[in-house]
Design a protein around this nucleic acid. Structure first.
Lengths: 221, 221
DNA sequence: ACTTGTATCCTTGTATACGAGTATCCCTCG
DNA sequence: CGAGGGATACTCGTATACAAGGATACAAGT
């Protein structure tokens, strides 16, 4: 086998298109909470703000719609997806399902390397003062544990659901108690992995997600 | 609260846009197998075939990309997603997960009405001579059992994964033995539901999906 | 003969322009 | 004074047009 295959295989370079740029920027803004749920996203308004035409904007909105962050009504426009407890419950039901399975599949393959990556992500959360970056680091921690499940499709779904949930979670981050408890739970999960205790790790992960869901719902009413 | 909200809420009428039309047509063609996996989907080629411009085509391709039926490489174009055993395994792992959970959630709420709908779908499969319609009817049977899970997001994911799998399943339909066995398994699941035997129904469903996956993989090599 | 450079073509990404549908506001009528 | 109807403005969906990037074929040099 050609030794260069590793390079081409691992790094599938996708030329960053304008639509992608808009999508990531908008995604961050929505997840971050800087645009309220229900806000109308006018195409030519966005176009002028980004100093581009409406076409890439349309593409970006379609991308975000697929991720569940915005909903598009033909002839009426795009809106930041609503924030209701029903959807939160739906998302977290799915997340528990997907993520527990991902960890279960990945567990036998967990190496020192990925566990270190997960640990590194947790440490960076502690050091990070910019609240808006916690979401990404949180995702990095979880994904590090799941990556070895060797199911690209599953990982894609998990990431999408995580993003959909993250903008809700955001409102809790100012709550210091929530943050420290989340950190404690993260480290407990990682410990279970280090001790090769699969059943415990899965149970802790499910509890971690369910608790977050309950906390979130409580904070919204 | 306005009593009319119920109407507007339940029936969200989406004016069928050209992009949607193209998406459904293309989806059927891909699932049906009339366009081979890996085929390049040229935008202006499709545009001339549908006698419209490239813009709705682009939108349609994005929709299908989100469903996992095509993959888009910037500056290179869109291609019908590849058909390999790896992806089949990935899809069915996810399907088992999602569908078993959906049935579990729906089980306590299963009514005579929905069970009749499921039964009706099975009878229509037997009567249907047009092989290309079996996929839709098969989906109808499964979705009837899951609908009452009351998780719209979960149902959307299930439908997407089903579509992604269906075009592989298609190659097996000519196999009469596969078809009769699938029918037997379907009726067994429905029976378990009718007898209110949840554990059995879930087990049969998981087996039904896993067996289909194995059969599929075997037929491809 | 194989590699490398180049020119052409092809395809996509983006911009601008136009038509259609919807919502809003105001005017008129009861 | 309130309700209904019509005109206007706004927004989206679609078409056409242009620009940029990559792929391919061919030619030249080693």
């Amino acid at each position: 086998m050609d030794p260069l295959d590793k390079l081409t295989g691992s790094r599938i370079e996708k030329p960053q298109t304008a639509a992608d740029h808009v999508a990531t920027t908008l995604r961050e803004a929505i997840v971050k909470g800087s645009v309220a749920a229900g806000t109308a996203l006018r195409q030519d308004d966005l176009a002028s703000r980004f100093s581009i035409s409406r076409m890439p904007i349309r593409d970006a909105l379609r991308i975000l719609e697929a991720e569940g962050l915005v909903s598009i009504h033909p002839t009426r426009g795009a809106f930041v997806a609503k924030m209701d407890t029903t959807e939160i419950r739906e998302i977290f039901t799915i997340r528990v399902l997907l993520e527990v399975e991902a960890l279960r599949l990945a567990f036998p393959k967990l190496s020192r390397d990925v566990l270190d990556q997960a640990d590194h992500a947790l440490n960076r959360i502690d050091e990070e003062r910019d609240v808006s970056r916690w979401g990404i680091l949180n995702l990095a921690f979880h994904m590090a544990l799941y990556r070895e499940c060797r199911n690209a499709r599953l990982l894609t779904l998990i990431e999408a659901q995580h993003n959909a949930a993250d903008r809700y979670v955001r409102v809790l981050l100012s709550d210091a108690e929530f943050h420290t408890r989340s950190d404690t739970e993260h480290r407990a999960i990682l410990n279970a992995c280090n001790q090769n205790n699969e059943a415990l790790a899965l149970q802790l992960l499910a509890k971690h997600l369910n608790d977050g869901c309950q906390k979130l719902i409580k904070s919204l009413k």
